[in-house]
């Protein structure tokens, strides 16, 4: 075969591009046109990937402060009650000896968003400054981040269920507060940031770093 790819060449360097929606291979010259199979616009890399990803990430980091400082809900029984924050809710669960549930909520509401923001910052810096690091590890990190991020919505659903269920007038009622809005937008923004991020950019800079291993693919030998 005449144009057999060498082990290290990306499709773009070889004059091809992949449709992002149906993954059909096209020629690079067709960039900006529509895929003849699925109709999606053809881009060899996600357009403005870095700027959108950075913007969503920075916005989510800023909003993470009000999300944690403002109360997310208020539980009132017999006229008494005080608003609680995300961390307050977790601590309350831990005090009541509900260790497992407390840890689940702590993980979903605080650990996961913080780790996701750190991971996205590392990934974006890697691409932005062309750092030479273990690229396969970075790709793996992105996959985990992308998969786990949505679980942060857990607390939002809990608030929704409690607010709908505990509406017993003067006996007990729960209402949501605007910390929940901030937190929901944080989760949304980190998901947008991950979607806008193009993993192929990780590999564009440091292609010599990770040679393909020959075990998976006989053509590389």
């Amino acid at each position: 075969m005449t144009d057999s790819p060498t082990a290290f060449r990306s499709a773009r360097d070889s004059g091809y591009l992949l449709c992002s929606d149906c993954e059909k291979l096209h020629y690079l010259s067709q960039e900006g046109l529509h895929c003849d199979r699925c109709g999606a616009r053809l881009h060899s890399r996600i357009a403005n990937s870095m700027s959108i990803s950075w913007a969503c990430l920075i916005a989510s980091i800023l909003l993470f402060l009000p999300a944690n400082l403002l109360p997310i809900m208020t539980f009132t029984t017999f006229g008494q009650g005080e608003p609680s924050t995300i961390l307050g809710g977790v601590l309350h669960l831990l005090e009541e000896d509900m260790l497992m549930i407390g840890l689940i909520v702590l993980t979903a509401s605080i650990v996961v968003p913080v780790l996701k923001m750190i991971a996205l910052t590392i990934l974006l810096c890697t691409v932005q400054f062309g750092l030479q690091t273990n690229l396969r590890q970075k790709t793996m990190m992105f996959r985990i981040v992308e998969w786990i991020g949505r679980w942060s919505m857990l607390d939002i659903f809990v608030i929704g269920i409690l607010v709908a269920l505990v509406q017993l007038g003067s006996i007990a009622h729960i209402e949501g507060n605007h910390g929940a809005t901030a937190f929901a937008i944080v989760v949304l923004l980190t998901m947008f940031s991950a979607i806008a991020f193009d993993t192929r950019l990780i590999w564009d800079n440091g292609i010599s770093d990770c040679p393909p291993d020959s075990t998976d693919h006989k053509d590389d030998q």
């Binding site: 075969m1 144009d3 057999s4 790819p5 290290f8 060449r9 990306s10 499709a11 773009r12 360097d13 070889s14 091809y16 591009l17 992949l18 992002s20 993954e23 059909k24 291979l25 096209h26 020629y27 067709q30 003849d36 060899s44 690229l135 790709t139 993993t199 192929r200 990780i202 590999w203 564009d204 393909p212 693919h217 006989k218 053509d219």
Partner: peptide
């Protein structure tokens, strides 16, 4: 598209050009 080689594919995550097996 007409003429795009059928024996080639690209990885959607790292854009490596590979021969289809």
């Amino acid at each position: 598209m007409q003429g795009t080689p059928k024996h080639l594919i690209a990885c959607h995550e790292c854009d490596l050009l590979i021969e289809r097996v």
